[in-house]
Design a protein around this nucleic acid. Structure first.
Lengths: 225, 225, 225, 225
DNA sequence: TATGAATGAGTGTTCATTCAT
DNA sequence: AATGAATGAACACTCATTCAT
């Protein structure tokens, strides 16, 4: 039996795994579908039926894996935050000059919002519901601390090298970096109408990113922005 | 028309006017209630019954005056934009120095968001629905043009006086002025959790406004920000 | 207009009333349908859709008039108790001899259960749910007190006249009068199988009533039962 | 078989027996859990998941051993009847006087209901479903016949000894003995509210049992009840 | 102008049951 | 023998909207 077991070891990989992987895969498909649906229609506007359909899963499975619609939203939201924070940590800004690190971070933030527009509406939804779904999530606080530390380190290095001015609050800087990208993109629809300008035209996007980089560099007092 | 109006004036006072005035009052109450409800729960989350209740009106009246829920939202949204743009036009910035005019505008924008938080969620809702409710609204475009002109004029005066740098796009500046206040306030719930900081504490609000003013002044290149 | 009004007075009876009566009638139809459905299938087994259908009403109306399924059950239950207690009060037992009054009460109880079998299952359901739906109903306690008083009075008269023995607790007697009819009828299905006897055959019913009357008369000590 | 059993004994202990014993144990655990769940919530209100959980068994096992929910209920119900009838047969009433035998039977019935309240709700559920689950159960009819015979024998002995009156139908007596205990206990929740009296207080229980014994003794005509 | 009654199409959620291993 | 995954049908309840007056 031990020989068979050893033999089965490899073979089982292709039999047992699918079994466990099926569950994980279903869960993942539901999560992805939910992220999209919540992003498209908000928490209230999202339809559980549609999520199930989009996930190519049974509606019952959603309740089995996530409990209910709100809990599913909570999971989606936390995962969205973890995703962006994880990507930020992977930027490897330490070997860049403070100025370049900051530019890279502004550009990354902008591009992340561009590539993952669902993040924007998820956050909006979370705030429409007064942040209720983020409460009691230690994970979120952990990754956020790392993020603030990341910006704080760049700022400190800039001050030490004499290229940034002193006394800038890393949290306020963080918020502003996010704000100038977030606002433009989340309000791209009303913005395009109000300002009679195609917000999502490639040239316009490029222009805005440059404007944002300049805004941040001037803010931290980097010479020759 | 003015003669007719004068003629009708007295007669209407006793019979028709009260009637029309009641009608106007009902309409206004519904509009105010709807603005609040849409702001609190979004377009999808808002309840027609609740709006009727909040307006101390009959549900049927909503349909009588506004057609349906979406049309009501459209009206609320346009009125919200008209309100803020009207307030901006009333600022009388012309007699201030460009630098002070800009500071005043940044502060006004911030305080308007603070005092009218429903504006933020209404705009968010409008964008969740891809700006659909703002289309075909000439009124909106008119007032927006005036706004851009207002900022453009300040900018031009600053350049002429040599206190602002050249080449700044008034629209981009507009957007950034809005963004740095809007983002902080609309995301105050998730922000307070993520950054472990009470976003709405009076000191924090004051701090943010100062940070924003500095951001804009440095952006336009005003010396001694 | 006053003439017309006077004229309309009677005519309106046939126009205006239906309006108000419609609401009341709908409510009443729902209540009757619910009583039947709850009696047939219990609280858990009853279907709101079916109640609406049986009431020839819209499902939405049930929620409009009664709030939810449990509240509807509560209303049904209270009304069922009020109905039987009201019928008992209408018996006019005072002018009968104590012995005949008691016999009449036993027979009435039996026949009421026979004619209103839904009462039995409603009470069973209420107890399956631990009486939760009867709590906080002052009405129920009021009518029950009257009922106990009614039996107490008969008992007292019997004692005074020397035909009943002393010291019988009216509540215990009440319970026993109910029990010997209730048990036979509510368990008629299992009873018919267990005892291989058609519990609902007319002769059997008559036989049981006589047995019950004898049980009660012997219990109170009436001579020559 | 005993030899085989002895032979198998050791070997089975380690391999086969646990398996079969496990199967029986699982079946028994499911049955016990089901009895409790059905008693607590009725047939419609009982949840298959909960039964599986309560039985510390897999849900699939329920279907394997019992077919489906209704069949499980049927099994539970029959077993409940067999249990009470078996306990009654073990009473050894023959060596008691008819009067004492009857008293003991009334007390036993009462105490059995008290100790096994699930029996009451199971029977109620069975009747809510029109006794359907008891049909075609020969076992039930057999044990019931024995029960009627048991009461009939006491009655006959009493008549023979001149302490009971003639002509009492044992079935009717049976029903009444059950009724006066059953009704009080199954309706203890509504009863406690209606009669403003704590039905389950120890003194109240004792009082009711004495009342019931007196009721039955007077009914059969035993002198000096 | 105003209103109470009524409704159909959904909406999140639950449940007994079967599949695949 | 035992189990985790999956499902379809149903269920209580909701909502924007219309009817009738």
């Amino acid at each position: 039996m031990s020989a068979a077991g050893a033999n089965k070891g490899r073979q089982d990989m292709s039999k047992a795994k699918p079994k466990t992987r099926d569950a994980d895969a279903t869960r993942a498909r539901i999560l992805a579908a939910a992220k999209q649906e919540f992003a498209d229609y908000g928490l209230g506007g999202a339809r559980v039926d549609v999520i199930a359909e989009r996930a190519n899963a049974n509606k019952r499975m959603i309740y089995h894996y996530f409990g209910n619609k709100e809990a599913l939203f909570r999971t989606v939201l936390v995962s969205a935050y973890v995703d962006i924070r994880t990507a930020e940590q992977a930027l490897e800004l330490d070997h860049l000059s403070p100025r370049e690190a900051l530019m890279k971070l502004v550009a990354f933030t902008w591009n992340y919002y561009l590539d993952n527009p669902e993040f924007l509406t998820l956050v909006n939804s979370a705030n429409l519901h007064k942040g209720r779904h983020l409460q009691d999530s230690d994970e979120i606080i952990q990754v956020s601390r790392q993020y603030v530390g990341l910006v704080g380190k760049i700022l400190q290095r800039g001050v030490d090298e004499g290229v940034f001015r002193e006394g800038i609050d890393p949290v306020q800087l963080n918020i502003t970096i996010a704000a100038i990208g977030y606002y433009y993109l989340t309000n791209r629809f009303t913005g395009s109408i109000l300002f009679e300008r195609e917000f999502m035209a490639p040239d316009r996007l490029k222009e805005r990113l440059e404007f944002n980089i300049e805004t941040i560099l001037r803010l931290v007092g980097a010479e020759n922005p």
